[in-house]
Write a protein that binds this DNA or RNA. Structure first.
Lengths: 113, 113
DNA sequence: TTTATATATCGAGAATTATCAATATCCTTT
DNA sequence: AAAGGATATTGATAATTCTCGATATATAAA
């Protein structure tokens, strides 16, 4: 079947721009590109749980140099923008990039900006 | 000769994201994509003056629904980010898109985000 | 050189964002 | 049920952004 990937709206794009208008949030997104390189291997969710590439908040926290609460809030902002997705597994919350949104965002830039 | 177009830095990218984290500034950039369509034809700088596609501040002002000073400041923000360039001709200041920066920005998104 | 037009800058208040410590909530383990 | 660890939320203050009117500056016209 042909997946109809809907073009992002201007409003959503602005929300993404806001999310990325902060160096640390950009860093987080960039680190999530190569979780194995930036975080301790055992920390990411194991493949079996079906959230490959996900990194838990405390791991991200220990890399960014911000308080736990700010780290959590920044991840919420990235989540709201659609750039990342999250899954709670037990007591941990794992975040990973939402490559579909990122692809649509790229497309938006090329067509609308 | 092979033009060596330098990759945008993370810092510059964040400045661009900030510039675009406002719907009206995005609108301005979008309108400058088709000046003839959005602004009165005679208003843009004439081709002979070598700044094709440029639109003067007052024309932009009359489209965006913000005060003259805010319009001017928003254009400065876009200018600082590199997304537009400007040229003063007589008493008018013309702004137009800087397609080279925009192209590099697109490339940055694809490679670094 | 006075006047008019176009744009930029200044000063200020409102709104939003950044950031933290403290606390609450949710799971897991005891 | 109590305790502990992980994450989210709350409350607060500082910093930044938004936005305007007023004013300054630059250029053109009279």
């Amino acid at each position: 079947m042909n997946r109809e990937s809907t073009m992002i709206t201007d409003e959503q794009a602005v929300e993404i721009f806001k999310a990325l208008s902060n160096q640390i949030r950009v860093n987080i997104l960039q680190m999530l590109k190569e979780p194995d390189h930036h975080f301790s291997t055992q920390a990411h969710v194991i493949k079996e749980k079906g959230f490959d590439g996900g990194v838990c908040v405390s791991d991200i926290h220990s890399k960014v140099g911000l308080s736990q609460s700010t780290t959590s809030q920044y991840l919420s902002i990235l989540l709201q923008s659609g750039l990342v997705e999250m899954k709670r597994i037990g007591q941990w919350t794992y975040y990973r990039r939402n490559e579909e949104t990122i692809k649509q965002f790229e497309k938006y830039i090329g067509l609308k900006i």
